[in-house]
Amino acid sequence: MYITITPQKLGGNYSQGSGDFVGYLEKENEGLEPSEMEHFFNQYDDQISAEDVVKDIDGNTAKLKKTEPKFYSITVSPSKYELNRLQDSREDLKKYTRELMKDYVASFNREINGRPIRIEDIKYYAKIEHQRSFKGTDWQIKENQPYATQILQLKNEIRKLKTQEREGEIKSLQRKISKLEREAPHQQNGQRIVQGMPKAGNQSHIHIIVSRKDASNTFSLSPGSKHKASEVEMHGKKVKRGFDRDGFFQRAEKTFDKTFGYQRNFAETYKARKDFIKNPKVYFASLMKLPTNEKAIAFKMIKESGVPMLPSIPVSQAQLAMKAFNRLRRGVEVATKSSSIGI
């Protein structure tokens, strides 16, 4: 499970409203029959129009400055193993979203009128998408890049040769291109993986747009707060503040596991990913203590995620060299972060 929380992008190239973002989330509905479309939903309703989402989010921004985000985007990306546990991706992910947003409000160390924040205190809309494309930041694209560069160079040479009608040399270069296409390390359905190519398999994931202001348009609720759960004295009164991001990510996993009876492997836990980045010695020691069958699954998951594997598996604490860990971390630190706001 990968969850990111991203503030609304502000600046000269971005709209002050939510229209652009909501429009982006409507892209998968283009060309589909009404029965095939995915609609926005929230805690209470299943079929909410994009127009209503924009109107509601943009109308809930009282006293927010132009430089402050009006909403946050939460993206929830279950792994293929988690998706395989679902019976109906559409309905099960809706069910999970509604439970997840209870975890979201529980992670605020805030009160409204002297009571903890409740689900009815927030304004959010969610949408399920079923497609993903390879991006330039994906490890498959990066590892295929040397081949892509050579192929581009050869194609440029072919363009020049075509003006000179040098057919023999052109065919030779085309054979080299075909060879490079086959040799690229990452393929999908017999094709070299390139940026923009749709990813195969079940790619269902959830986009959530949540208003910065509470449902009454009175209180500001920021999951991007730099403050962890704490109390501060303001105007002579003690005020609770902060958002527990660690707690939110951990609750999100437990809620998924409880809701769908999922047996989570160590390698796919938020704690493991965090230890991998911040304390790799602890991470690898924990990995080696797993029962044999769980360890085998863990290494399979790690390999699939693009983490470069060591030539041999360390068998003693003395072999847990920090140099090796640092090599592992450099290549995957960005990819393994669980929040774009920061862990």
Rank of each mutant, 00 (worst) to 15 (best):
E36G: 06
M37Q: 11
E38L: 07
F41R: 04
N42E: 06
Q43K: 10
D45R: 14
D46S: 14
D46V: 09
D46I: 08
I48M: 10
I48L: 01
S49V: 03
A50V: 03
A50W: 00
A50L: 00
E51W: 04
E51Y: 11
V53H: 02
V53Y: 05
V54F: 06
V54K: 10
K55G: 00
D56F: 01
I57M: 04
D58L: 08
D58P: 04
D58H: 08
D58V: 06
G59K: 13
G59D: 13
G59C: 11
N60F: 09
N60Y: 07
T61M: 13
A62R: 15
K65C: 00
K66P: 09
K66Y: 13
K66G: 05
T67E: 10
T67K: 09
K70D: 07
F71Y: 14
F71T: 04
Y72V: 00
S73C: 11
T75H: 06
S77L: 10
P78E: 01
P78S: 11
K80V: 06
K80P: 03
K80Y: 01
Y81S: 02
E82I: 05
E82N: 07
L83K: 01
L83Y: 04
N84D: 12
R85Q: 14
R85C: 08
L86V: 00
L86F: 00
Q87V: 13
Q87D: 15
Q87G: 14
R90M: 09
R90W: 00
E91C: 01
E91P: 02
D92F: 03
D92G: 05
L93S: 08
K94M: 14
K94V: 07
K95C: 12
Y96R: 03
Y96M: 12
T97I: 04
R98N: 08
E99C: 03
M101A: 05
K102V: 14
D103F: 07
Y104H: 09
Y104W: 14
V105I: 15
F108V: 07
F108M: 07
I112M: 10
I112T: 00
N113T: 09
N113Q: 12
R115W: 02
R115I: 04
R115M: 10
I117E: 04
I117C: 09
R118Q: 14
R118E: 12
I119L: 15
I119K: 08
